[in-house]
Design a protein around this nucleic acid. Structure first.
Lengths: 116, 116
DNA sequence: CTTACAGTTGATCAATTGCTCACATGTAAA
DNA sequence: TTTACATGTGAGCAATTGATCAACTGTAAG
């Protein structure tokens, strides 16, 4: 017996208990991952970077990325669902922009790290 | 003709040009996405959060997450490949910790946003 | 040497994901 | 009203991903 004891209790129970106490709850963790997931795709990262500089419509973003406006629309839907972008309608067009200053901060911080 | 003109040139060429000028190059973008990808999974997010508080071994992380040490080892390999964690060997154990203060900042910033 | 065990690794498989395609919606010019 | 066109949406498909399983490695106690 005593098999897998390590994986059940861990080798450093005191340290584990400290970490457990501060660990965010499951829902917060999922929300956190959703935010990072939104930033974790080249297309969406380009979209968000562009919107951090200018308010743009779907066509602009399609042109910028070289993808179809359908593809962009799908991604914007996801970004809207995560409340990372908001939009306003004007005639036929939909103008998108960042919903939150936090997003810009995350992007810039990530870029800073990406460039070492 | 003049079909798809929108998707070729965009509707706001001046704005597009401004954004294009500041857009990070492809390699930087991929690196950026790799970093965010590493943070975009609940298991890895938990691992990174834990390591942001304590130096821990694979067993500890397995116990913390309820996953096999194999699963954890796979994820740590990925995190190592992205230079987000480093480790030192001591007898049979491998102690992991965050490789970079930037990671802790990104995590905390993300959490701040996740909690609104 | 033998055993135990922390850790690593490659194969595999189900689930997720990002795009395309075809079609629907809504607005405005002709 | 007809037409053009910016945008949104559901289905489908190929590629990616995260876990499990079954090995294997290396270290240290007996």
């Amino acid at each position: 017996m005593a098999h897998d004891l390590c994986e059940v209790h861990g080798l450093h129970p005191e340290a584990l208990e400290r970490v457990q106490g501060e660990m965010p709850d499951g829902q917060t963790m999922l929300r956190l991952c959703d935010i990072f997931k939104a930033l974790a795709d080249p297309t969406r990262a380009r979209i968000l970077f562009a919107l951090s500089r200018e308010e743009l419509c779907v066509c602009d973003l399609a042109s910028l990325t070289g993808l179809s406006s359908s593809a962009i629309s799908h991604q914007l839907r996801l970004l809207r669902a995560n409340r990372l972008v908001r939009f306003r309608r004007e005639a036929k067009m939909a103008f998108y922009s960042l919903d939150d200053e936090h997003v810009r901060l995350l992007l810039d911080q990530g870029l800073c790290h990406a460039r070492e």
